[in-house]
Computed example of a mutant assay.
Amino acid sequence: MTTLTKNHKRLTLFHILKRIIAITIGGLLMSVGLNIFLIPNQVFDGGIAGISIILSHVSGLSLGLFLFILHIPFIYIGYKQMGKTFALSTGYGISILSISTTFLHGSLAFTNDVLLATVFGGIIGGIGVGIAIRYGGCLDGVEILAILFNKKLPFSVGEIIMFMNLFILGSGGFVFGWDRAMYSLIAYFIAFKVIDIVVEGLDEMKSAWIISDCPEEMKEAISQRLGRGATYIYGEGGFSGDGKKIIVCYISRLEEAKLKTIIEEIDEAALLSISHVSEVRGANFKKKDIH
């Protein structure tokens, strides 16, 4: 019997410090979004933060205490499901969120306009959560729980998170009123979209797959006129049985129109498929100068 072992590369001191700083900023931003914008206007959040806000309001106990205690089981689940590094990063992020909330909770509202507070609280909180996720942590246990339930339920992680948050936001309506629950739903939606932007980045890339009878000429034009490299994937036509060179390249959204122009000029009958890519990395992925 062959024993397979995984060698995990240790993080360098630079990467550890970068992660600590990023997760600290993320936790502080989420705390600002909650305590300076949302909570003073009785707008609450989804997830464990939302449950903590409701319990704190009903019991009169510290919000920071609820945030920390309620997240302990999820940190353990994160350790079992995703490893020690994730659990440590998440535990640190939750600690920063809880401590900063303890100091900021009850402070004056930045604005008394409920709609402005909803929008900016959602944006700032979303940026904070997104930064934490991007650097390997998590500031809300609902996502960890959804990953666990996903293995036993016929729903995606996103659907489970949505169901949980709709239940939490609905429960908050009985405590803060239904108008505040609707504002909270707006804040949640804004934060959800901002998290995607922060995690995936503003520099959205796209992958282009091109099937053409002029692959060499097409690849050369992409290199010379777009400054992008291309890769051949060898395939076979399902109907004709002919061998095909499929060209694969990665472009920015600003380059999509120019790529289509190049393809139309060289081979109008070429098949083009373009899909979204959240991130492209690698030492060989860089745009060459074009003249």
Rank of each mutant, 00 (worst) to 15 (best):
62 S>F: 02
262 I>K: 13
157 V>M: 11
168 I>T: 13
269 A>G: 06
211 I>F: 03
195 I>P: 03
172 G>Y: 07
84 K>N: 09
168 I>Q: 13
14 F>N: 11
129 V>I: 15
224 Q>W: 00
276 H>P: 13
282 G>I: 04
82 M>L: 11
203 D>K: 14
259 L>H: 01
233 I>C: 11
69 I>D: 05
58 V>S: 03
26 G>D: 05
23 I>N: 06
220 E>D: 11
142 V>H: 05
81 Q>S: 06
21 I>L: 14
11 L>Y: 07
254 L>P: 01
174 F>K: 03
206 K>F: 07
68 F>C: 02
211 I>E: 09
239 F>W: 00
287 K>D: 13
210 I>H: 00
236 E>C: 03
239 F>Y: 13
86 F>M: 10
17 L>D: 00
240 S>R: 01
168 I>S: 09
86 F>S: 11
252 S>R: 15
194 V>Q: 04
41 N>C: 06
220 E>P: 00
8 H>V: 06
34 L>Q: 08
140 D>C: 03
40 P>I: 11
249 C>S: 14
125 G>W: 12
251 I>F: 02
241 G>V: 01
168 I>E: 13
285 F>W: 12
248 V>F: 13
139 L>V: 12
131 I>G: 07
244 K>C: 10
281 R>Q: 12
267 D>Q: 09
48 I>S: 06
196 D>L: 01
191 A>P: 04
212 S>L: 09
23 I>T: 09
22 A>R: 04
179 D>V: 10
